[in-house]
């Protein structure tokens, strides 16, 4: 685990997302942030415990925190982009203050607004792991490469959080595009969370 951004490998978001999904055996919740963060979650294979955002940029971590508070026994992941996190940096202080043990934040940092044409974010000189630590998430760390990312995931799944895993991304685009039907996304997620139990017709 690294506390600095020196020598971090730039990784492929779809590959990291696939590695994450492969480790989920306990119906863990995953909240995919807007844009390519949730596109690759969708592309990695739909699970009923996935929630795909369609707007409300910056709210993947708060949504995941709400799920984590409602179901303390369920590990809950937020997949958030660096541009999105910049929109709602203050939420890291709320996470640190409430410290939900079952919350795991994965930051996908490509340094750009990829979905709008690749413009650099103003966070050119920002170290998001350092920011998370300074907000009180003291175990926040960068994943140096894919092997370490998997090791950090194993640790996050096995131990109390909140955890924050930073990943530097390469410039590859998403593998697919999420089906945009918010009412259906919400309904499926609630069934995945066990809060809606009746069978669907047809």
């Amino acid at each position: 685990m690294s506390g600095t951004t020196h020598n971090l490998k730039r990784m492929y978001r779809f590959d990291l997302t696939t590695r994450l999904v492969a480790k989920l055996k306990q119906e863990e919740a995953v909240i995919g942030g807007i844009g390519h963060s949730n596109f690759d979650l969708w592309a990695a294979g739909h699970r009923p415990q996935n929630f795909y955002m369609l707007g409300s940029m910056g709210l993947a971590i708060p949504i995941a925190m709400g799920v984590a508070l409602a179901q303390p026994a369920r590990k809950t992941f937020a997949l958030e982009g660096d541009g999105s996190l910049l929109m709602e940096l203050g939420c890291l202080t709320t996470v640190a203050a409430q410290a939900p043990k079952n919350l795991i934040i994965i930051l996908f940092d490509n340094g750009i607004y990829q979905i709008t044409g690749g413009q650099p974010t103003p966070g050119l000189h920002a170290d998001y792991v350092a920011i998370a630590r300074a907000c009180g998430l003291t175990t926040a760390a960068w994943a140096a490469d894919e092997v370490e990312f998997e090791r950090m995931l194993d640790n996050a799944l096995a131990t109390d959080g909140p955890h924050f895993i930073g990943c530097k991304l390469d410039s590859q685009g998403p593998k697919a595009q999420t089906e945009r039907d918010p009412a259906q996304i919400r309904d499926r997620f609630m069934r995945g969370m066990g809060t809606k139990k009746n069978r669907t017709l047809g």
Binding site: S56, A64, L69, A70, C91
Partner: peptide, 23 residues
């Protein structure tokens, strides 16, 4: 369970997640 958020938007996210998960 009562706490302050840094911004109102954040709370909309927290409440949305919590409601979908039964709180």
């Amino acid at each position: 369970t009562c706490f302050a958020t840094a911004r109102e938007e954040e709370a909309v996210g927290i409440l949305s997640g919590a409601w979908m998960a039964g709180l």
